[in-house]
Design a binder for these strands. Structure first.
Length: 115
DNA sequence: AGTGTGACTTGGG
DNA sequence: ACCCAAGCCACAC
């Protein structure tokens, strides 16, 4: 398995409940700033095998990117179950729910505070 | 080897 | 805020 793939998997698994990350963000953290589409591919093919929280991954606009209606619905359901509010169009307030990965010695916790 | 495709992103109008 | 065009990169045909 490629290092990039492993990194992406690790990053996604590290997203806490009630938080989301964008494809581009994940790609950047994994070392490939323009690898958003590869993140998609990995998510698509490895999420089940690795038990990844795929529902915590959204696009740069903060909206649910999944195509299938059924999956979209499940994603919204999971998110709302974790306290992430989505509007009728499946949009999420990124300012509020985006997960910001820490660089451990910066002394800053990984996520933004909410409420 | 060339072409098409996608759960993306950014920049412009 | 919304829609569109171009850029991107690995993978499937």
């Amino acid at each position: 398995m490629q290092p990039f793939t492993k990194a992406v998997i690790a990053i996604i698994k590290a997203i806490p409940e009630g938080r989301v990350m964008t494809y581009g963000q994940i790609a950047e953290q994994a070392g490939s700033a323009r690898g958003a589409r590869q993140v998609v591919r990995i998510l698509h093919s490895m999420s089940e095998a690795h038990g990844l929280p795929w529902h915590r991954v959204v696009n740069a606009k903060g909206e649910i990117a999944v195509l299938d209606d059924e999956s979209r619905f499940k994603q919204q359901l999971y998110l709302s179950g974790e306290g992430v509010e989505t509007d009728d169009d499946g949009r999420i307030d990124l300012e509020r729910y985006r997960h910001r990965p820490a660089s451990e010695n910066d002394g800053w916790l990984g996520s933004s505070e909410q409420d």
